[in-house]
Design a protein around this nucleic acid. Structure first.
Length: 306
DNA sequence: TGCACTATTAGCTTCCGGCG
DNA sequence: CGCCGGAAGCTAATAGTGCA
């Protein structure tokens, strides 16, 4: 069957649309299309219409609407932000980190598809450390279509903690903390499996997108499926996640225990601090450079005395 | 001391590659 | 598409200099 047809068939399934919509709920969504711009890059739609409303997908009907609206551009992949937002109506709502109500700590394991065993090994290391830190029921692994994402449910950090600290900062620190602790292990794994492409990145930033469960991969003929942490060994990408083939997808990505990640998030935040960028934060107060401040001060002194 | 010119610099803007 | 981050280029403010 033609590839475009396979994609269209895939998104006809209502359970596929349901997973995409439920995952995207509260997040800023995006649609990657096969149509390319004049520079040969695939179109990524993040806003809707002239008013540039952030793309939002909350129901199966929303997914249908978007697919229809952008039909001509050949929709291919669905993404959603790591962040959940308080309000998501206008462009402003995604411009400030103050509007972030929760965030999904995500370890992005980059690797070639053929290196899946190494990807699994890296994911297991992360899961093991998370479990040692008390985070077990709110974690899942998502096969991205190539590598994998280990994600903690955004509500595993309690509302109390989320209201006290910015959720993006907490998520950033959480990912960085675990990642840096395990970095030597990742290198060992890369060597052991001869997976030179293996990398575990902290990509948490104010607008970071990750692929939605059951989305088609942006290049490969693969589907992003969620995996139960205990069953990583049972999964074989080429058998279980091929576009058009039978899909093994774990719907347990929703499960979580509120507050389970509080301790880890706070420990990480205390140790490392939050997201280092300035985007979305109030701009630093403008002041003259130190040098000229001193000169001004000296001149004032001289003027006053002489 | 006042003025015109030059040098310096922080902070913009613009471009690019990489990415989801 | 829109973003990040880095590099390069630009700009406006102002420190510094020479001269009358």
């Amino acid at each position: 069957m033609e590839q475009a047809d396979l994609i269209r068939q895939h998104y006809l399934k209502s359970w596929v649309k349901r997973e995409i919509a439920e995952y995207s709920k509260g997040r800023w969504a995006a649609l990657h299309c096969d149509k390319t711009d004049e520079r040969g890059r695939k179109l990524l739609i993040r806003y809707f219409g002239r008013r540039r409303k952030p793309l939002k997908l909350e129901t199966i009907e929303d997914v249908d609407l978007i697919l229809k609206r952008f039909e001509a551009w050949k929709p291919r992949s669905f993404y959603a932000t790591a962040n959940l937002y308080g309000r998501l109506e206008r462009e402003d709502d995604v411009a400030s980190i103050d509007n972030i109500s929760a965030c999904t700590p995500t370890w992005d394991i980059d690797n070639r598809l053929e290196g899946w065993l190494a990807t699994v090994e890296a994911a297991k290391e992360i899961l093991k450390l998370l479990e040692e830190k008390g985070v077990k029921e709110s974690v899942y692994v998502k096969f991205s279509g190539k590598g994998a994402h280990v994600q903690i449910h955004p509500y595993a950090v309690s509302p109390e903690v989320r209201s006290k600290y910015n959720p993006l900062d907490l998520a950033y620190a959480t990912v960085e903390y675990v990642r840096s602790k395990l970095q030597p292990r990742f290198v060992e794994i890369a060597v052991k499996f001869k997976a030179e492409g293996l990398r575990v990145d902290n990509e948490i930033d104010p607008q970071r997108l990750f692929v939605c469960p059951l989305s088609v991969h942006r290049e490969l003929e693969m589907v992003a499926v969620c995996l139960e942490p205990e069953r990583l060994d049972d999964f074989n990408p080429l058998e279980d996640a091929r576009l058009g083939g039978p899909l093994r997808h774990w719907e347990g990505w929703r499960r979580h225990r509120v507050g389970e990640a509080d301790r880890l998030a706070l420990e990480a935040y205390r140790l490392l601090g939050g997201y280092p960028g300035t985007y979305g934060r109030p701009r630093r107060r403008k002041h003259p450079p130190l040098e000229s401040q001193i000169w001004r001060f000296l001149r004032k002194l001289e003027g006053g005395e002489g």
